[in-house]
Design a protein around this nucleic acid. Sequence first.
DNA 1: GAATTTTCGGAAAATGTTTTCCTAAACATC
DNA 2: GATGTTTAGGAAAACATTTTCCGAAAATTC
Lengths: 340, 340
Amino acid sequence: MPNIKMIARKAGVSISTVSRVMNGSKPVSPDLQKRVYDAVQQMNYKPNSIARSLILKKTNLIGVVVPDVSNSFHAQLLSGIEEVTAQADYGVMICNVYRNMKQQQKYFNLMLERHVDGIILLHENTIEELNEFQKMTNTPLVLASVPLEVPGIPFVGIDEISAAYDAVTHLIEKGHQEIGLIYGDCTALGILRKEGYEKAMRDHGLTMKEEYLTQCPCSVDHGYQAMEQLLCTGAHPTAVFCVSDEMAVGAMDCAYDKGLRVPEDISFIGFDDIEISQVVRPRLTTIHQPIKDIGKEAARLLIEMIEKKSRSMKHSGGDQAASEESRIILKHSLVERGTV
Amino acid sequence: MPNIKMIARKAGVSISTVSRVMNGSKPVSPDLQKRVYDAVQQMNYKPNSIARSLILKKTNLIGVVVPDVSNSFHAQLLSGIEEVTAQADYGVMICNVYRNMKQQQKYFNLMLERHVDGIILLHENTIEELNEFQKMTNTPLVLASVPLEVPGIPFVGIDEISAAYDAVTHLIEKGHQEIGLIYGDCTALGILRKEGYEKAMRDHGLTMKEEYLTQCPCSVDHGYQAMEQLLCTGAHPTAVFCVSDEMAVGAMDCAYDKGLRVPEDISFIGFDDIEISQVVRPRLTTIHQPIKDIGKEAARLLIEMIEKKSRSMKHSGGDQAASEESRIILKHSLVERGTV
DNA sequence: GAATTTTCGGAAAATGTTTTCCTAAACATC
DNA sequence: GATGTTTAGGAAAACATTTTCCGAAAATTC
């Protein structure tokens, strides 16, 4: 591998001249420029990115902290992120948290030790952890589809409450009054969606029955169990709103096993519009999220923050946090299929 | 951020001593050791990984080239990879190729420019490209679930031919004789699985009809179209082997829409055992691949190669390619569900 | 044609490590 | 007591860049 010194020697110029033509940082006479380009070509020279990182304090690497890459929703977010980062010449490093949220701090440190230029969080942290993080470093951070309100940390996603509201309203408009809810209460996501449910019920003058509420982690299997539990109580909802598609297909499955017909005997509405909602029979009616776009927007915003920060560092030399105070809310939509 | 010099000053020792206690590369007296540790603690010192990379010529970063992260199969592979790399203190950088295989070379260059220590390929390249790659660099490379035979490049996956053979044999054992095939012929995967189909048919004395063979890209929608096409020809297979679960659920859907009952009128068997095969009704009978384990094994092997190489570089100083000549074949299995 | 400004190339410092090469002391051997 | 062998620990080179500073040459102005 040739280095800048070899190119300089070959082209008969100084090291700095080579650097200047490579980065266009200062004007260089056409004559020398050509000599440098020729040498670069002949030796197939590529500037060493590590050495550049060291001096420029920029790795062109962003970190993505994700609960589980193999989950369809997160994988799609990731794909959106990757698309725009790749275009902007950033690499993305992933960090799979699985469910061991305890080691959260460790993951942050890992990314920071690798000097990522910024982080996208797909995984829910406590607000304290986020504040802690901000205190510790001024590495840009954005939350994608993690609806937390933390001063200085931008969020991109949908309006969870109103999306849930729309889902439940749809059920109500179709004539349902006894509406069950399967949700998870240990994430902000689940809680907000539940809020949307409650609001819709209230706004339409429906009473919420305690026994119609069931909570479980977000997975097909847990959705099944939750539905079982819901039916066990003797409750007979005519429709169920599940705060994720996985839960919904699990729940549907349970209903099916209990001899209930969907949508004749019981209706279901999901949330997210991931792949499985389009392969189950009947097709799952659900709330569509522009998942990939959320990823893209998050990446776009993060890169913007990174570049803004590195510009300001260059000029003022200071390290004031360039805190972007923004929330990017994308449009969700109801997609009617066959389960209500 | 403190650097090694500051620690040295604080502890009242030389830079090299600090380095030595950090890496345990040479013995240091307990007294000085303690002083260094105290300084490190007090200043919360973390060695700068970039500077280390520069001198050690090791980034502790591996690259994963993947056709599409949002695809369930690849996402699972990735998750397996990430699990073992994280444990071994390697980061993983992803490179989403989407379908533009043309720019393949560009992706390799991208990874090499970032000086990844090794690459896992989940995306099929031509053998020429791989040879080209090997000629260009001696960065370790392993193929995960890309069944290509290239000298010096290890592969980890399943025995595609025999897995396909098992699938078709299962159909035959259940009494089917008219067996259709939906496959893709532009990947080694599709071709090998087709081979398995052919072998099974031949071994059981069944004739293969040209009109029973349909090919299409691997997706639910294409599977649907392929099935449509298959039925259009007037052929009436009693079972269809689809070389991926996506194709299979698409094909099943088509059958369903044509008024055929599964499995009474027509049977289906898929391949991969990804999530959707467990949510469709009836549940898809399929060939199970230990996807996550493939990812894990690939990562394990790659890291082994990397460390072996860096050891040999250290001792002999040479840069002979430490070519591992291995193929790791994991066990597949038939999982009987409801579609045959 | 002289004075002033602009342009451009080169030397050297800076980035934060690891590692090689020394020196000097401690220890063992004869 | 003299000599050889470990061992601890420091100075400096090496890694591959970018960037600042400086001086020389060229271009512009009066």
